[in-house]
Every structure is written in structure tokens, then in C-alpha cells.
């Protein structure tokens, strides 16, 4: 099975984020790491390869620093890496990112393309779905389990309220992977050493026609949400308190209507 895993480099969890003075983006002076759901997608791909044979390619779209997530993936056992590189590529929206991935792999056949369910930073959950649409292949989201069957795969999807859906689908296909479905491995010393000699191809985003011009989403403004919680201590007799609670709820439009 040939697998492609899409990885995104995002600010490290708990990184102290600051907005730039224009309020259009963060100040990029933080540490970065692979988006956690993508790490689970990679782990799943490596397990599929170990169980059924094949090859794992990883791809990222991002500035120079994003090569870090590819090197880590190679150290963990991916076979090849593709870096669609360019200044400002971190500003691409989901559509432009999916477009960049499509243009980076012309003529290459992958049985499965895995992404994380959504990224840790913008959390749009769109790249995988749009990618499938652009490539004209089926997709399924929130995948918990993958099992090859003749002509395709059988997958387990997570639904709301603890329910699951099992379905069979043909390959090639795009699957977006739920976090926590496996246990992430550590890179071994040997893996880190060998990663240096594995192929990492760089594609210049600009020459591929990839820029923020492709974006369909415009960031109007970024801001830190203000504190919204307001606490009111209601005292007095039960009757008075109940009346006060009822009026508060009514004022907020909660509760019985007509």
C-alpha cells in the first residue's frame, strides 16, 4: 500500500502567543511542532505499512522551518518526504493548501492519503476534504480504524454521542484521522541517523503558482477573546432567589417561551 500523510507545522502547544501589531497574524517567535492529529495520521500510516507492506511518503506545505516535521517523520520511519516550501505559505488557507498538495504530486499514485482530523492551530478540518474533491476521489472523516479489503478499505468513523459508523470504500481515498487512536512512537537513534539519507524533495511554492492569491478565506482580524464569564451571587430567600434566576434566564432568552 502506498500512503501519503499530510503534516502541518503549528506553534507548539502552550507557546506564549502574541499578535502582531496589525492584528493579522501571530508574532512568529515561538517554537513549532507537528500538529498532533497529523502525528496520529503518521503513526497510523506507519502501522499500516508495517502490517501490510508498502511505502509512506510525508508532505508539508510551509516555510523553511516546516522541514522539521518532515525530518521527524523520516526519523520515525517514513520513507520519503516532500516539502512545498515558500515564505508566507503559513498564511495559506485550507483550499490553497489542498491545491498546493495536489500540484506537488502530479502523476503519483497513492492508495491512501491521510491527514489529521483538524489542525491544532486553525482547526478548520478542511484540507483533507477539499483535497479529495480536487483529486476527484472519495473521502471519509474522523477515522478510528483502517483495515484493507479487496479493492479498498473498511473504516470505522466516530459519530456523535459514542456511536460509530463502519463502511467500506474504494481506494484511492482520503481519510482524516481522529487523535488518540494509537500510541505515538518515539524516533530511535538509528531512525534519526538514517533519516538524513532518505529523500526529501523540495518544491518551490512560487514556481508551482502557490500563493495567498489562491486563498478563499480572508482573515479580517485576529484577537484574543476577552473574558466573558460574569458571576452574580444571588442571595435572599429561596422564593426571591428563584424569581431572580428566572428573570436572569429570561433576559438571556433561555427557558420556556410562549
Amino acid at each position: 500500500m502506498k500512503l501519503l500523510v499530510c503534516l502541518k507545522q503549528v506553534p507548539a502547544k502552550d507557546a506564549p502567543l502574541k499578535l502582531n501589531s496589525a492584528g493579522s497574524w501571530i508574532v512568529e517567535d515561538v517554537s513549532y511542532e507537528v500538529s498532533e492529529p497529523d502525528a496520529y495520521a503518521l503513526e497510523e500510516a506507519l502501522r499500516q505499512k508495517e502490517a501490510h507492506g508498502g511505502e509512506v511518503t510525508v508532505i508539508t506545505v510551509g516555510p523553511q522551518r516546516a522541514a522539521q516535521v518532515l525530518r521527524e517523520a523520516l526519523a520515525k520511519g517514513a520513507d520519503k518526504a516532500i516539502h512545498v516550501e515558500g515564505d508566507g505559505t503559513q498564511l495559506l488557507d485550507s483550499f490553497a493548501t489542498a491545491e498546493a498538495i495536489t500540484r506537488a504530486i502530479p502523476g503519483q499514485h497513492f492508495d491512501l492519503i491521510l491527514t489529521g482530523l483538524q489542525s491544532d492551530d486553525s482547526g478548520a478540518a478542511q484540507v483533507g476534504v477539499i483535497l479529495a474533491e480536487l483529486m476527484g476521489i472519495p473521502h471519509a472523516t474522523i477515522i478510528m480504524q483502517i483495515e484493507p479489503v479487496p479493492g479498498g478499505v473498511r473504516v470505522k468513523r466516530e459519530l456523535e454521542g459514542g456511536a460509530f459508523q463502519y463502511l467500506e470504500m474504494p481506494t484511492p481515498a482520503v481519510l482524516t484521522i481522529q487523535s488518540g487512536i494509537n500510541k505515538l512512537r518515539y524516533a530511535t537513534l538509528m531512525g534519526i541517523k538514517q533519516a538524513k539519507s532518505k529523500p526529501l524533495s523540495k518544491i518551490n511554492a512560487e514556481t508551482d503558482g502557490i500563493s495567498v492569491e489562491l486563498n478563499r478565506l480572508v482573515i479580517e482580524r485576529l484577537y484574543v477573546p476577552g473574558a466573558q464569564k460574569k458571576t452574580e451571587r444571588i442571595t435572599g430567600t429561596a422564593k426571591d432567589a428563584a424569581a431572580r434566576i428566572a428573570s436572569v434566564l429570561k433576559a438571556q432568552g433561555i427557558g420556556a417561551g410562549e
Binding site: K183, L184, R185, Y186, T188, L189
Partner: peptide, 17 residues
């Protein structure tokens, strides 16, 4: 890598080299 808080190996345990 991959020891739990009591020192027992977790499923992704990777012993030091």
C-alpha cells in the same frame, strides 16, 4: 522513553541505547 510514572513501560516504550 515511554516509561509511566511508576517506571513501568508503556506500549510505545523505547529503551535507551
Amino acid at each position: 522513553k515511554g516509561l509511566d510514572r511508576t517506571g513501568q513501560p508503556k506500549s510505545n516504550f523505547e529503551p535507551g541505547s
